[in-house]
Design a protein around this nucleic acid. Sequence first.
RNA 1: GGCGGAGUAGCUCAGUGGUAGAGCAGGGGACUCAUAAGCCCUUGGUCGGUGGUUCGAAUCCGCCCUCCGCUACCA
Length: 546
Amino acid sequence: MPDRSRYYLTTAIAYANNQPGLHTLYEVVGSDVIARWHRMCGTPTRFLTGTDEHSVNISMKAAERGLAPREFVDEMVGLFKASEDRLGITPDRFIRTTDPDHVRAAQEMVRRAHRNGDIYLGTYEGWYCPNEGFRAASDLIEDATGFHCPNHPDVPLQWLTEKNWFFRLSAYQDRLERHYAEHPDWVEPEYRRNEMLGFIRQGLEDFSVSREEAGGWGIPFPIREDGSDALLPDGTPDPAAGTIYVWYDALINYITGAGFPDSPDEFARWWPADLHVIGKDIARFHTIYWPAMLWSAGIEAPRKVWIHGWLLVRGERMSKSRGNFLDPNAVVDVLGTDGARYVLLREVAFDRDSDVSWDSFVRRYNADLANDFGNLVNRTVSMAARYLGGERPDPRPADDAPLAARWPEAVARYRERVEGCRLHEALAEFAELVADANRTVDAEQPWVLAKAAREGDPAAGERLRGILGDLVETCRLLGLLVAPFMPSTAPRLLGQLGHDYGYGADGNRGPALLEELRWGAHVGEAGTLGTPEPLFPRLDVDPSAG
RNA sequence: GGCGGAGUAGCUCAGUGGUAGAGCAGGGGACUCAUAAGCCCUUGGUCGGUGGUUCGAAUCCGCCCUCCGCUACCA
């Protein structure tokens, strides 16, 4: 039974080795929508996103630029924050793995696992690139002469062994299988859950959690080989103890962001997380390693991990290394903040891979936003102002308003889809409501009623007022319904209708959304219609754009 | 190789036994409130192939072809 008194959700933290690509920010946009939905519904919400900043790679990349690692990642983080800001992302905390409380959290987790007997000294061996450190075999290029590092193909790889600490993942196999059985939807979509379960059933191996060398850029391992605290007499970390490796650094951010270990009360309030939104490339680490690491430290597993797919370009994964990625700033330049958010989450299914292109984005923007939704609002406000004057007409009672009939069920379906991470389906529901309203306009032909009224038909005038009142109300409801996706459009839309928009820039501090989404919630309140201005100017298709 | 999934209109997909569907794209029409938008109508598919079960299969079963996901230590 989910705790409805608060909602805590996270994205994966982005590797701060480059400027952000649209494919990286995709899950952040989707998560932001879910966060805003819960905030607007009045649930205290905590939304965490941020950056993963340690690794040999980053220290080398910084060195290439003549920068200290810290200077380098500060610059990258600035780029991430700037792009996220343009996309309307509103984290309650932007966490960095270089934050001091995160360093304490990671070290505390290592200590707990060690105390619990789940961390032991072992030997790690693998291919080692002198430039980058250990490389996974799956990342290497293999040819007739053997394995090569993809980034340094001319540098011979060495097969190295080093003494590392290992986490006893193998001890958690039974508990993991039980957890999957008892919480059948804790990993979604279902086909991902089945893949993870299949992996568990193959048998689990322990994994290493330390490295001897990380270019001086990592969280100091808090324990020496003899089990003593790895501190020098002056209180600084003992470099001989090595650094924490990957997962005991990156994954820990989710509990750091909830207050671990410094604020037990805060942590008790926000943990376990309701939702981790991640990409499929790191599914195993979140759905198998992570719960085991938490259990080892006496902490509950998160309630749900949602695994989204990738953005594809002509069938290939969008990625920085392929060079086929879109710059999120460019997308916002063309489509605007809300246009970019809408198109991204409507064109890309949140549960699987989807092909994207400028053409598909522009087409979707024009069809759904300019032609259907924006134009609906524009024609409604224009007609109401022209035929009835500046005062906002009230909707008819729900029983008399055909447009009201489907509303409660539609809201319920929409809510279920947003809360179930099926964001593209939520927007499909929204689009159907828009289409329904447009059909109503054409069926009722308010311009004909207006003419009849002018010629002295009082019944036509009555009907005209009712129809336009219903349409104005439908626009209000649509704007609020889709506000988590298009937060800057909603206040503009409501402004044109003469309604107040009571929510803050991040969706907090407003009236309970589900109350606002009731047909006729503001009947009887006076309001003045504003000037009709297109919310989404139609775009000319640029045939040269890829 | 093992496990799992998918092949349906130009594109993206829905449809699990009973006369082939939606959105977008294409064509035509009536209207005019509106961002030349909206609305109505419409072109278009031997539902991957093949054999079977059935009165009847996109839908169930067998075989084949093609594609995709997972199959361990990237940050």
